[in-house]
């Protein structure tokens, strides 16, 4: 950092000390010292997991060398993380598609129509934010048992969609309101039906909304632990968080396998997050951050 401004400071031709102080100021220590400390706090735990995942179980160097993939082979094939990964993917993609379709429909109705009960509905949707998933664990279990969906991945897809639906619908209606209704009207004047106008004019403009909402839906369902623990009973229906919990319980000594499993669970969400985190800061905040 200081390299950019250093010539200017030197140009002022001060003594060694002022030059040093000038450099310190230009490096803005009050920003970078806390930021570096915090970065260490964030990154060291990730690094530690990578070290464990890639080094042989016999080694205890604080760096992953000699490098080995044995841990990954073990968790993927022996401990069943291949299946867990597949289940998590299925649920995540199911939630992503289902949620986007339902919340696009609901968002469109909320944004473009006046109807009786509209404000009551919005109020109810907001109130659901105070109803936590853990507290509904028991009644939801009973419902899914009546529906015969216990130990079925559909139960997870439904539960994940339901708990993310209220705020994503409100967010989607906000996005749709920002697309001028005149565009649709123009298309309808040109002979489109209402549905066609929505599909070919409004829908393409909503791509960022779908990407953002879909990503957060995916991350949310990928991370959901309690529902999966409660509703899935056989090991070939476990998702990654349940698999990790299982590994913690059963193989607490084998840290290499645990770390490799953790890395498998972490990479997809961290990569997706890195791409969409700017949407978060642009004001999508509340619907997305709620856990």
């Amino acid at each position: 950092m200081s390299a950019i401004t250093a010539p200017a400071v030197r140009g002022m031709g001060g003594s060694g000390w002022t030059q040093f102080r000038g450099r310190l100021n230009s490096a803005r220590l009050h920003l970078f010292v806390p930021l570096t400390l915090y970065l260490l706090f964030t990154i060291v735990p990730f690094y530690w997991m990578v070290v464990f995942a890639f080094r042989p179980t016999t080694s205890n160097h604080p760096y992953p060398w000699p490098i080995t993939l044995a841990n990954f082979k073990e968790v993927w094939n022996v401990l069943g993380f291949g299946t867990f990964f597949e289940n998590s993917m299925l649920v995540g993609v199911g939630v992503l598609i289902g949620l986007n379709v339902i919340c696009a429909m609901a968002g469109y109705a909320l944004a473009r129509f006046k109807f009786a009960g509209r404000s009551a509905l919005i109020l109810i949707l907001l109130c659901t934010q105070f109803v936590p998933g853990v507290m509904l664990l028991i009644p939801l279990f009973v419902i899914f048992r009546h529906l015969g969906l216990i130990d079925n991945l559909f139960a997870l897809i439904i539960a994940d969609i339901v708990f993310q639906l209220p705020l994503t619908s409100l967010l989607m209606s906000g996005f749709i309101r920002n697309v001028p209704v005149e565009l649709e009207e123009a298309a309808m004047v040109d002979g489109c039906s209402r549905v066609r106008a929505f599909l070919s004019v409004t829908l393409p403009l909503l791509r960022p909304a779908f990407v953002a909402i879909g990503s957060f839906a995916f991350i949310g369902s990928w991370n959901n632990f309690l529902f999966a623990l409660m509703f899935m009973s056989s090991q070939n229906h476990f998702t990654l968080p349940v698999g990790l919990d299982y590994t913690i319980g059963e193989f607490s000594v084998n840290f290499g396998a645990l770390a490799a499993g953790g890395l498998i669970a972490a990479v997809p969400v961290v990569v997706i997050f890195a791409f969409v985190q700017k949407y978060l800061v642009q004001g999508l905040t509340f619907g997305a951050v709620k856990g």
């Binding site: 930021l35 964030t42 997991m49 991370n223 968080p241 953790g262 969400v269 961290v270 985190q277």
Partner: peptide, 27 residues
């Protein structure tokens, strides 16, 4: 941009994964 992604990344991580990581640190 990079720093922001790195600093915010733990937000995307699940509770169970957090446990996994901190068990490794605390052992």
């Amino acid at each position: 941009g990079f720093t922001r992604a790195a600093v915010f990344a733990p937000w995307a991580v699940s509770g169970v994964l957090t446990t996994t990581i901190w068990l490794l640190l605390y052992d």
